[in-house]
Each structure stands twice: as structure tokens, then as C-alpha cells.
Design a protein around this nucleic acid. Sequence first.
DNA 1: CTGAAAGCGCTAACAA
DNA 2: TTGTTAGCGCTTTCAG
Lengths: 337, 337
Amino acid sequence: MKPPRTGPPTIRDVALAAGVSVGTVSKALNQTGALSPDTRQRIIALADTMNFRANAMAKSLQSGLSGTIGLISNDSFGRFTMPIMQGLDQVLAPLGIGVLMANATDDPQAEAAHVRHLMAKQVDGLIVTARRADRRATAHLAGLGVPVIHVFARGAPQDLTFLPDDRGGAVLAVQHLVDIGRRRIAHVTGPADFEAVRLRAEGYAQTLAAANLPPQTPLHGPWSESWGRAAVAQLAQTAPFPDAIFCGNDQIARGAADALRDLGRDVPHDVALVGFDNWHVMALAARPPLTSVDMGLSDLGAEAGRAMARMIAGDTLSGTVLLPCRLVPRASTAHQE
Amino acid sequence: MKPPRTGPPTIRDVALAAGVSVGTVSKALNQTGALSPDTRQRIIALADTMNFRANAMAKSLQSGLSGTIGLISNDSFGRFTMPIMQGLDQVLAPLGIGVLMANATDDPQAEAAHVRHLMAKQVDGLIVTARRADRRATAHLAGLGVPVIHVFARGAPQDLTFLPDDRGGAVLAVQHLVDIGRRRIAHVTGPADFEAVRLRAEGYAQTLAAANLPPQTPLHGPWSESWGRAAVAQLAQTAPFPDAIFCGNDQIARGAADALRDLGRDVPHDVALVGFDNWHVMALAARPPLTSVDMGLSDLGAEAGRAMARMIAGDTLSGTVLLPCRLVPRASTAHQE
DNA sequence: CTGAAAGCGCTAACAA
DNA sequence: TTGTTAGCGCTTTCAG
């Protein structure tokens, strides 16, 4: 006398209950094969009342697809990763694809271990995100046998990469400053070895040139508020003082705003300010709230998700896709009467 | 003539190459069964050179365990979730357990959908994190058939919950202020409907009482910098002005620091400041850098991971575990000569 | 000490 | 239109 089966109902239980074979149930539930409409309906209804859920592991073993992808990132604060993850999940969850996270560090050794762990879990694809210094080492990502997509940080050239259009974002920002009548527009930004920094500086220079305005040499420093403050102090020593500053990120912009207030310069009246990232905790808390460039990270994630789904289905995609940025105007560039 | 097998090597390939049976390979690789030491070694070595990785899906189907758990959170910025995730992954990855993420919102409907998605992926357990308003609705988490652990936010009473010791953290903070000689210690904090807010207020009151100092009614407001500034303005209207403020989080503390500077009050000389969260982007960027209470979120995650591993193995755990907070002293309470 | 065989839950030919 | 059967890759009795 075998113990009365326990646990969730299997396809067998449904077949038994419906008085048909397992194969028939499978066909009914998957909308495949040729079945009389009413057996199909009957089985579907029955499965539903029995609360039957097909065992994902069995399906996976059968199909060779785990139905999960790996997301590997080295952005420990999650400031960039979370929005990307959100966009990703939003398109992948409805497709029945799950996202396995692995927090890597900058240690390539540890990162390789994470990749191994994810591969051992049989992920159907890998999304690689990173704080973006320049192109990162990706040796351990070669020949994995699954699609690899890079988001927000450039990866190996043969892989598909999604990036925000940094140059375009800078154009948006600087053109906005030009449009509100600013003429002496400075650029205070991050370390020069970031590709994004170079691209934004290009967008800055090119927009000024198009407007026949004098470009200024970008000021490079760390991505911090204190650098923003220091940069303003530096700017204050050389006349004429700018009437606008395009900042490389919101932290720098916020530091600049604080320093300008300490100097008695009004933002936006004396100096208009634009940041980058549209990081709400910074942009909204700053005094005044910062106009900023939004990189649309969740869109980036969503696009990567769609591409991943296609690649899992067999398409082969590669190259670099730039997604547009969006300007979010706030008080730091508000029109003055 | 069948096509020459492709794809990763299976246990069959190893068995063939080793000239033994599949069962033997399984035993060798899993350190189970009774095998002669040298066949075991030989097989292990061979599998290694063949770069054999046991198919996780087949193992899962066999064991009934997917080797993944779900992490569901509604903290869209990831500020609280990421450190928890990190601790979790740190203990779970070496155990071969992956973490599937689902970004819920506050919408219970959507959250239920996420839970269904995770359950469909056959997760072996569920970790629930949240921005913590009070005990959240958890109806959709009942009777899932897998262990559920709540981290950082209180869940259903029958589930295991890991929380930071908010009251203890507050005691640490206020005692520190007492120790550096402050006597008029105010408390500016978040909305009163957060359990954490109530607990911290209790710790505050109890520490003052123990030191024979006059307690002040906590000032409640949103978790924002602007509330920190507003609260200082409010405090400024009632003499005597405090010589220390214990703030409910780092954003409030930072707002307070800014407002105090605008008022010409020196921090820490005139007013010492302690924040909560030890959120680096706030605590370090503030002027001066903030002394803060660290909730040890990654420890919380690590503990939850260990507990989850035990529960998956069959242990049944429940109740609420409080983990200690840690005070991180910085310039905002620095000793003055 | 090792091999053979059953079976985890499901899908997909192929038969009936 | 439906049932039967052979696996997917692995573990685990049970024989030998």
C-alpha cells in the first residue's frame, strides 16, 4: 500500500482525474496538438480547479531552458542596477523568465566565480551591468554558450550592448541652458577616464560651438558633492564667472549649488545648473531642486530584456544600441522674470 | 546515423569515457555510495578535464529542489534591498543557492503576481523585504508550501522575521550624545506610523530617563531633508535651543545640518547631530559628515540566508530575531576642546 | 565494489 | 482525436 501521493498535483493527477492520458493533458494545457475543443476546455478547467501548476523543473529539463537569466553587476549601491533590473523584470516576468542576481565586486576573480555560479544554475543568458569605468575586462565571459548582453557599460565588441546616449544627453542639457539665455557655460564633470565623461564633454563642446559660444575646458574630478563645491571655488577665481554650469552628475551639481549659495550667488538667477542622472534623492533634495538629464535606465533594462528574449529564442544580435536621454527641468534652470 | 552529440558533456559522456556506468559516475562525483578510492579519483579527474558540470535542472527535477529562492521587495531605490541582497547572496551562493529577484510595488495585486511568478519558478523559499511601514499585508503569502522569511519589515507572526534592533540603535545614539556631554537632546524623526519610529523614540526616551535628562516630545515628519530643515526652524522658535539632535534617518540629519549652518550654529560645537541608516551618500556628503547608526543590513541578509538554508533542509524556525545596530562616529559629534 | 534499472514530471513523436 | 512510448540528465535502490 503506497502512501497517498502528497505535494502539489502533477500532470498525472490531472490526467487521472480527467480520465485521459498525460499526453492529452500536456497538449490541452500547452495549446498544442490536435484536440477536440471541449476536451481541451474540460481539461483546462479541471487543471484550474485542481490548482495544477506545471513543474518548472521538469519543463526545463525537457526544453533545455531554465527560464532564468543572470544579472551580474558591480554597482554595490544599486543606484544604477535597480532601475535596470526593474525594466528587465518588467518585460521578462510576463514571459516567464526570472532574473537571478549576483552582486559582483570589482575583483575579476570574484566576478568569475559569480559567472560560474550562474552558469551552474543553467541560466539561459547573462546581463552584465556595471558602474562604468571604461570597457571592463570580460575574459571570463567568452565562450559561455549563452547570449551575453551588456547594459550601461560597454562590453566585448562581439556582444550586444545597450548604452544611454551620453552625448545626446549632454546636448539636451547644454542646449537647454543656451535656450534660457546663458552664455558662459562651464562644465564640471567626473574622471576623464570614463567614456561617458568624454562623450558628455563632446556633446557640451559641440552644442556650444553650434551656438557660437566660447567653450571652456571641462573640469574633471571625482563624482562627489565635495568636488562640486571645490570646482565652484576654482571657478570663482577666474573671471568672468559662468552664468551656467553643466555638471557631470547630480552629486556634483548639488555640491555646486551649495557652494554657490555660500558664495551668495543665486541659482538659477546668477548661475543656472544642470545635473545628470536624475537621481531623485539628490536632484529633489538640492536647493533649489536640480534640472537633470535622465538616462532612462529602466528603458535600457526593458530593451535589454526584449533583446534577451529574442536571443534566447535563437536570434543572434550584436552591436551597440544607444537609447536617448531625457531632460527633466526643475528650479535650477527655471525661467527668471 | 545519429548526429554526434553536441552541447555540454553529460554524465553519460563521462561514464562512456571512463568505461563505467552512469550510476558509478554519480556516486563518484557526489561523494556517496561505496567506491574504490582510485576509481573515484579517476572519475573525478576525468570529469574535471572534460569540464563536466552536472545539469542543474536534472538535479532539481530529481531532488525536488530548484536551488533558488525568491527575494521580493518594494524598495524601488534598492537602498535597503541591495545590502540585504548582498548578505544573502554571500551565504547562499557558496551553498549553490541562487536568488531570484522580483521588484514589487506597494500594489498588493502586483505583489501577488510576483509571488505567483516566483512560485511558478519553483523557488525553495521566499525572502520578503520592504520599506517598512507597519506590518504589511501578507495574505498572499499564506500557505505557499515553502519557507517564508521576512527581513527588515515585520511579516506574519508565524513566519520567521529578522529585524534590526531599532530601540537598541537609538540607545546607542543617544547614549553617545550623553557621553559627549550633551544635555538638551531633541529627537526629529519620521512618520509616527512606522514601528521603527516608535521603537527609536522609546530608546531615546529611556536613555534620557536613565541619564536624568529631560525628554522632549519627538518631532514627526516625512523622511526627507526638507523636513530636517523645517524641524530645525521649528526648534529655533522654542528656547532653550537643543545642544544635540538625534535624527530618525540620515536625510533628516543632513537637512538639520544644513539648516543649522544657515542659522549660524556650528555642528558639532553648538549642536551635535546623529543620524540613522549610515547611508554613505548622505552621511559622508553632509557638512560635517554625520555620526550615524548602522543597521547592519548585510548581516541581516546573511542571517536570513543561513536561516533559509536550514529551513530548506527541513528545520522549522519562527519568531522574531533582532540584530544589533552599530554606532559609526563622525565629525557631527566629534569631541570639542 | 560496480552495474542495471526505475523514476523525478513533462513533452513530442508516432501509433492507433 | 486520443493514447503510448521514449526520452531530457540525474540519483538511488537493489542485484550481482
